[in-house]
Amino acid sequence: MTAPRAVGVRTPYPAIPARVRTWVDGCLGSPVVGWEEQIGGFSPGCATRVVTADGTRAFVKAVGSELNADTPTLFRREIEVLGLIGADRLWATLRASYDADGWVALLLEDIEGGHPDLSDDAQMEQLLVAAEALGEQLSRVVLPSGQRAQEFAHPGLIDVRASFTRWLGAFEHLDEIPTELLPPLVRDRADHCRSLVAGLLEERDYRLTHWDIRNDNLLRRADGSLVFVDWGAAGVGPAWVDPLLARLERVDTPWFDLSVRRSPLLVAAGEQQVTGWLIGLGCYLAWRSTFAADPSLPTLNEFRRTEARRFLAGAVRRLDADLGG
């Protein structure tokens, strides 16, 4: 198993409010007598596998606004999305949810297994297949408005077009990005790079997307099947986004470019959209890493810097090939 790419500082289960733990006991019909904290992700709340006196197992994630003002919104989004998509082996089933007095909690099916090792070719291939299957499932989701997710936004979900607009806005701040984070080719070809990012706004094939696929948001069962977890970033976006995210573990290697050409959705999107996505998010993360970190998310800026380097390295490799370098 590989270590999670994103690791924050979490609150242990015994430290969450007694009223939330009482709710968990009531939902499970037996008091929790054992727990195991999990790592991965940035939420300062708990992420805990629990077992009750009668042997029932479940997964609990809970956060309060006093820990971080924004994270409860992510949890509410996850509750909404899991309610929309129902049950499937591709994700953990939502058993119950809690939202009172500033605390939001989810009680989920406990998936036995750990994070996949995406340096292993076989496990990476499993992820690519699973991401295609996930896309098929999400393409069928009908939003509460009665419209399929062809619209650009939906209340409560991430507006991916707005994200692309923010990425484009980062080009107004390139001079604020440390030189060690912004490759010379991107700086020297800023107008060309900006046009590639602007091209993302021309997308029209939108649907529900997970929008946060990385190794710490995946679990691998004993039978090898993969489960997509943490739906707090779910949004309405291009159909090719999740297949792209599934490949990002290797974005800084030539494998990534070869694999992109194996995905029908990414081929249909075009090489420039993929490069524009890498440039846009890479520059945005590099710029955001210069902001003061939220004290409740002490590892976030280092994650931003690490991911910015990886995404921009992949973009530069692709730009070099396009420019005949």
Rank of each mutant, 00 (worst) to 15 (best):
P264H: 02
G83L: 01
W277D: 01
P116L: 04
R247Y: 07
G29C: 07
V236T: 08
P254F: 09
F291V: 14
F311K: 03
S119E: 12
R76P: 09
S263E: 07
G45Y: 02
P144A: 05
A15P: 00
G169H: 10
V33M: 11
L181E: 05
D110E: 15
F164R: 12
L200F: 12
V142P: 07
A53R: 15
W277S: 05
W211A: 11
R21F: 02
I39E: 14
C27Y: 00
A222Y: 11
L281V: 09
L118Q: 07
L219F: 03
F291L: 15
A69D: 13
L90E: 11
E176A: 12
T306V: 13
G235R: 03
I177K: 00
D188W: 10
P116H: 05
L196V: 08
L285M: 09
R261S: 15
S30W: 04
V316N: 02
M124G: 13
V316K: 02
G237M: 07
T275C: 15
L134E: 04
Q150H: 15
Q137H: 15
R140V: 08
P178A: 04
H115M: 14
P295N: 05
G83K: 05
P155D: 10
L248A: 00
D54V: 01
G45C: 03
L323M: 14
E176M: 07
P254V: 10
I111L: 06
D54Y: 00
I16P: 00
I213A: 05
T290R: 05
T71H: 07
V241R: 09
E180A: 13
A58P: 00
W231K: 03
T290V: 10
V24C: 01
D242F: 04
E176C: 08
I39Q: 13
V24L: 00
Y13E: 07
R166E: 11
L201E: 12
T165R: 14
D159G: 02
V32E: 02
P72E: 06
R161G: 14
D110R: 15
G325Q: 12
S259M: 13
F311V: 00
G26Q: 11
L74M: 08
Y206W: 11
W277L: 06
V241E: 09
R250I: 14
E180I: 05
L128K: 15
R10K: 15
G314I: 00
A268P: 08
Y13K: 04
E80I: 03
E78Y: 09
E151L: 14
